[in-house]
Design a protein around this nucleic acid. Structure first.
Length: 497
DNA sequence: CAATAGTATT
C-alpha cells in the first residue's frame, strides 16, 4: 500500500471512531488522544469531525480539537461550535465565532445561519441590527425562502418584540408550517399581542394547517392574557378531542388559562386530572392561581404537598410561594420560606425574590428588615426592588429614606432610557403622596423623550366575542347603559365574590 | 439541524 493510501485509510478509520462516540466525553478523549499520537488531529477534516462529536457534550474539548486544525478550522468545524453555543445557556459566543469565521474568509451556510438565528432569538440582549444583518445574509445567499431559515428568521424578529415585522414575513412566506405558526403565536403571547396570537390560531384552523399540542399551549397563553375564557374552553375541548392524554405542558397551560380567566373550579378539575403528570410547573401554576384568588393558605398547603410528593421546588416555585405570602399577608410564613430557600434547598435568591421580600416586609411594617434585605443583595437593586422600598417608606412615613430613594430611582430611570409605562408608575407613586412638583418633572421628561404610555384598556368576552374598552371610552352604542349599571353596582352595595 | 409550559413588576 502506498503512503498516501495508508494515510487516507488511517484517517477514515479515525473519523468513524470519532463519529461513534458522539456525546460520550470519555471515549472521545481516548479517540482524540489516538488522533494526536497518529499526528492526524491537525488535519482539518479530522479536527472538524472531532469538534462535531465533542461540541454537544464537552465544549472545552471541542475547542481543543478546533484549535488544532492546520492551517485553520473548516467551515464544518465553525458550524458545529456555533450550533453548540446557540443551544447553550449563554449563546453569545456564537457571534464571536461567526466574526472569526468571516475573518478567515468562510461563508455562512444554511446550518450556520440557522444556528445564528437561534442564538439571536435566545440571547436577551440581541440588537435588532444583528437580526437585520442575518436577514441580509439570508437574502444574499438565497436562503431566505428555505422554510426552516424563514421560520427561524421570523422567530428571531419576534423574540425581539418586532412582531409587526414577523407578521409581515409570515404573510410573504410561500409555505408555512405548524412550527412557523407555533413560534409566532408563542411570541405573541410573550409580548402581550394576545389578540394577534388568537387571530393566527384561527387562521391556522381556517387554512387547514396542522395544529399540534404545542399550538394549543401557545393559544392557551393568549387566552390567559386576554381573559378569554370561552376561547380557552374551546381549545381545551380541542385538546380532549385530539389527544389521548394531557401532557404536563398542556395541563399547565390550561391551569394558567383557567385561573387567569377567573375559573378556579375548572383549574382544580384539570389539576385533579393531572395526578400522574404533576411536575414543578403544574404545581406552580396551581399555587399561583390560588394566590391570585386570595387563597394564600391553600397555596402554601400545596407548596408543602408538592415537596412531600417528592417534587423539588425551583426558583419560580419560590417566587410564587413568596408572592402568595406577600399578597395574602402571611408574613412569618414568607420570611421562613425565604430563609429555607437557600438554607435548605440551596437555591440562590434572585432579583424577583428580593423584590417580593421587600414588598412583603414593607407591608408588614418592617422597614428596617426590608432595608437589610436590599443591603444584603449581591448585586445592585433593580428599579422594581427600589420601587418596592419606596412604596414601603411612603406607607411608613419615612421621609428621609424616601427622598434618598426618589433620587436613586430617577437616576436609574434617566440612564436606562425607560419606556413610558414605568415613568407613569413612578409618577403615580409621587402623586399618591401629593408631590405634584415631582409629578410634573417626570411628565415633562416623558414629553421631552417623546414617550407615551399606551392607553389602559380592558377586554370583556360576551358570547365568544371579545370587546375592547379603552380608558374613558364612550364609543360603544350602549355606553350610557353600561355606566348606569356600573354606578348601580357601586351604590347598591352589591358585593363581588 | 426550524418553535416549545409554570412567576414577579410596569
Amino acid at each position: 500500500m502506498s503512503g498516501a493510501a495508508c494515510f487516507a485509510d488511517a484517517r477514515a478509520h479515525l473519523v468513524s471512531a470519532l463519529d461513534a462516540c458522539i456525546g460520550d466525553s470519555r471515549h472521545l478523549k481516548r479517540a482524540l488522544a489516538r488522533a494526536v499520537v497518529a499526528g492526524l488531529l491537525p488535519d482539518p477534516f479530522v479536527s472538524a469531525r472531532a469538534v462535531a462529536a465533542a461540541a454537544p457534550c464537552d465544549l472545552p474539548l471541542a475547542y481543543l480539537a478546533f484549535r488544532a486544525a492546520v492551517p485553520r478550522p473548516s467551515s464544518f468545524a465553525f458550524a458545529s461550535l456555533i450550533r453548540a453555543h446557540s443551544a447553550s445557556l449563554d449563546p453569545s459566543p456564537a457571534f464571536s465565532l461567526f466574526a472569526a469565521m468571516l475573518r478567515s474568509g468562510l461563508y455562512p451556510d444554511r446550518f450556520v445561519l440557522l444556528s445564528l438565528l437561534r442564538a439571536s432569538a435566545r440571547c436577551t440582549n440581541t440588537s435588532p441590527s444583528t437580526v437585520l444583518f442575518l436577514h441580509a445574509v439570508a437574502l444574499r445567499r438565497g436562503l431566505h425562502s428555505d422554510l426552516h431559515v424563514a421560520t427561524s428568521l421570523l422567530h428571531a424578529y419576534a423574540s425581539l418584540g418586532l412582531l409587526d415585522v414577523s407578521l409581515k414575513l409570515l404573510d410573504e412566506m410561500p409555505q408555512k408550517s405548524t412550527v412557523t405558526y407555533n413560534a409566532l403565536i408563542s411570541c405573541c403571547a410573550k409580548s402581550a399581542w394576545y389578540e394577534h396570537g388568537l387571530d393566527l390560531f384561527t387562521e391556522m384552523l381556517l387554512q387547514g394547517t396542522h395544529v399540534n399540542a404545542d399550538t394549543l399551549v401557545a393559544g392557551l397563553s393568549c387566552c390567559a392574557g386576554l381573559g378569554a375564557l370561552g376561547h380557552g374552553r374551546s381549545i381545551h375541548a380541542c385538546a380532549v378531542r385530539r389527544l389521548s392524554c394531557l401532557t404536563s405542558e398542556l395541563g399547565t397551560s390550561l391551569l394558567q388559562m383557567y385561573t387567569k380567566c377567573g375559573s378556579l373550579e375548572e383549574a382544580r378539575r384539570v389539576f385533579d386530572q393531572m395526578q400522574t403528570t404533576r411536575d414543578v410547573s403544574a404545581w406552580t401554576a396551581m399555587m399561583s392561581g390560588l394566590a391570585m384568588h386570595g387563597q394564600g393558605e391553600e397555596a402554601l398547603d400545596l407548596f408543602e404537598r408538592m415537596m412531600k410528593d417528592g417534587v423539588a421546588p425551583d426558583s419560580m416555585a419560590f417566587t410564587t410561594a413568596l408572592h402568595a405570602c406577600s399578597h395574602c399577608g402571611l408574613f412569618e410564613a414568607g420570611a421562613k420560606i425565604f430563609k429555607e430557600m437557600k438554607g435548605v434547598h440551596g437555591i440562590e435568591p434572585r432579583m424577583e425574590h428580593f423584590g417580593i421580600m421587600v414588598d412583603l416586609l414593607g407591608r408588614a411594617g418592617q422597614l428596617e428588615e426590608a432595608m437589610q434585605i436590599v443591603e444584603s443583595m449581591p448585586s445592585k437593586p433593580s428599579k422594581v426592588v427600589l420601587g418596592a422600598l419606596l412604596h414601603a417608606s411612603m406607607a411608613n412615613g419615612e421621609t428621609m429614606l424616601r427622598k434618598q430613594l426618589e433620587r436613586q430611582l430617577l437616576e436609574l430611570e434617566t440612564e436606562a432610557g425607560e419606556e413610558g409605562g414605568f415613568f407613569v408608575g413612578v409618577s403615580n407613586l409621587y402623586a399618591a403622596v401629593g408631590r405634584w412638583n415631582e409629578v410634573c418633572k417626570i411628565r415633562n421628561k416623558m414629553v421631552e423623550k417623546g414617550l407615551k404610555k399606551e392607553k389602559g384598556f380592558s377586554l370583556v368576552e360576551v358570547d365568544g366575542k371579545l370587546h375592547k374598552f379603552l380608558v374613558a371610552d364612550k364609543r360603544h352604542p350602549l355606553t350610557m347603559e353600561m355606566y348606569r349599571t356600573l354606578h348601580g353596582m357601586d351604590s347598591g352595595g352589591m358585593m363581588l365574590e
